[in-house]
Write a protein that binds this DNA or RNA. Sequence first.
DNA 1: GCGACAG
DNA 2: ATCTTGTCGC
Length: 246
Amino acid sequence: MLRRRLVTEDDFAWKLPKTTSSEREEEPEEVEMLRYVGGVDVSFSKEDPSVACGTLVVLDIQNLQVVYEDFAIVTIDVPYVPGFLAFREAPILLELLQRLKKKDASPFYPQLLMVDGNGILHPRGFGLACHLGVLADLPTIGIGKNLHHVDGLTYSRVRQLLEAKENSTRDFITLTGCSGHVWGAAMRSTLASLKPIFISVGHRISLFTAIIIVKMTCKYRVPEPIRQADIRSREYLQKRQKGASE
DNA sequence: GCGACAG
DNA sequence: ATCTTGTCGC
C-alpha cells in the first residue's frame, strides 16, 4: 500500500550545488540550494541483540561536516528477515526525524536523506529507503554495501561488468535485471575500494541525480552521511553500555 | 530439494 | 547487524 505512493523521479524544490569550480555564476538568492543532507543508521548491542541505537546525522554538503546529530536507544523485537528490514528499522528512524522537525525552526532538517539499505533494489521494489521516504515525505537515496540478489542480478556478474568497464575508477554500472528493469547502480566510490556500493532510488529522486549526489558525498567508500551515522551510532551505543555497567 | 537472502 | 585479526598506505 505504501508503494503506491512511491515517486521515482526528481521531485524537490532545491538545485544541486555546482561542484565544478568553473565560472561560479552567482546563484540568485531566491533559488533554494541543496545544503543539508541527512544520514541514518541503526546499530545493535552484542550483549543484547534487541537493544539498538538509531542515529540521525545531518551534514553540510559544502564541507561534509556534521551539523546535527541525535540518538535514540530502543529495544527492537521485530526479527531481521531479508526483504523486511524496514519493519525493524524504520520506526526508530522516523521518530528521530520527527524529533528534529519539532525543534524550533529546525534549520538543519534535511532536504535529502541517505539511508543505510536499499531503495527500489529490493524483492518487491520497496526497500527501507523507499519506506522511510514515503512515510517522511522526503527525498531519499538507498545505499547498500552488499548486493541484494534480485531479478537475476548476481555479485559475480556485477564484478564482471565493473571490470569490463575498466575506465575511470570512479565510474558506475547500471544494474539491469533479466527482465530489463533498471534496479539501481553499482559504483566503486574510491580508487582504493574494489568492492562497490549499490545505489538505488529511494523516493522523490531519479537514479541519475542520486548518483551525482552520492559522488559528491564520497570521501571514502561509503558516502559521508551514512558513514558518520554508522560511526557515531556504534560509538554512542558503546559509551552507553560502559556507563550502564558502572 | 538447493541456493540466495539489504541490515 | 556483530566480532577478530592482520596488512597496507599515508
